[in-house]
Simulated scan of single mutants.
Amino acid sequence: MQLLKTMVHPGINLNQGTQFTRRTGRAIVIKDAHILLMYTRRYEDYSLPGGGVDEGETLEQGLIRELSEETGAQNIQIIKPFGLYEEYRPWYKDDFDIIHIQSYCYLCDADKALGKAQLEHYEQQNGMTPKWVNIHDAIAHNERTISLSDKQGLSIIRETYLLKQIAQQLFN
């Protein structure tokens, strides 16, 4: 898969400390000039649906499971790989110092009508909801959050970068 970007958090030194890798699958689902995204009320941002791949799952299996759980998407099909975004961040638990997140993004297809999402407890508490959104509106929203909000999470930089790449490659 094509490497889109490698981002290293400014607060870490890759040559010091211990690290582990978390592989994630992220879905790009487009219908009628809209993209399926997750809105997170806590961080006031839009992100691609997806998440961590469980042990024993392929990237594709994990992606389909996460997309279905987070959005209620049905009849999911993976069309083709889009690209990989990798990042190195500080880890907040005692077992490691750095997390290396590999976000494998795939263009997917699914029904426009969404079923019932099965969000994890923390996703519910963060106010995550699936929404069909104009991609340019989502980018503008995330950019406003980056410039104005102190509530933003670390993922908004990744998500905004990915949304811009998707807009440039798939919406132009």
Results as ranks from 00 to 15, higher is better:
residue 68 S to P: 00
residue 110 A to P: 01
residue 7 M to W: 14
residue 129 T to Y: 15
residue 103 S to H: 12
residue 99 I to M: 02
residue 36 L to Y: 01
residue 76 I to F: 07
residue 55 E to P: 09
residue 119 L to M: 09
residue 101 I to P: 02
residue 27 A to Q: 00
residue 126 N to T: 05
residue 33 A to M: 02
residue 93 K to L: 14
residue 62 G to H: 03
residue 102 Q to E: 15
residue 46 Y to I: 04
residue 134 N to T: 10
residue 13 N to K: 07
residue 46 Y to W: 06
residue 105 C to L: 10
residue 91 W to L: 06
residue 79 I to M: 03
residue 90 P to T: 13
residue 112 K to Y: 04
residue 95 D to P: 04
residue 50 G to R: 02
residue 57 E to H: 07
residue 92 Y to F: 14
residue 78 I to D: 00
residue 138 A to D: 08
residue 42 R to M: 12
residue 41 R to A: 09
residue 124 Q to P: 09
residue 14 L to F: 03
residue 112 K to Q: 11
residue 101 I to W: 08
residue 97 D to W: 03
residue 48 L to K: 04
residue 46 Y to R: 03
residue 6 T to H: 04
residue 78 I to R: 11
residue 122 Y to Q: 05
residue 102 Q to P: 11
residue 86 E to S: 02
residue 120 E to Q: 13
residue 126 N to I: 01
residue 107 L to S: 00
residue 17 G to I: 00
residue 49 P to Q: 02
residue 72 G to R: 06
residue 23 R to Q: 15
residue 132 W to L: 05
residue 49 P to Y: 03
residue 108 C to K: 00
residue 11 G to F: 09
residue 111 D to W: 07
residue 69 E to L: 00
residue 86 E to L: 01
residue 116 K to Q: 15
residue 78 I to T: 02
residue 125 Q to D: 10
residue 109 D to H: 13
residue 125 Q to F: 07
residue 73 A to V: 01
residue 123 E to H: 06
residue 121 H to V: 15
residue 9 H to V: 00
residue 51 G to T: 05
residue 111 D to E: 12
residue 82 F to I: 10
residue 31 K to S: 14
residue 108 C to D: 04
residue 93 K to V: 10
residue 56 G to V: 06
residue 92 Y to T: 14
residue 74 Q to C: 11
residue 120 E to S: 15
residue 86 E to N: 03
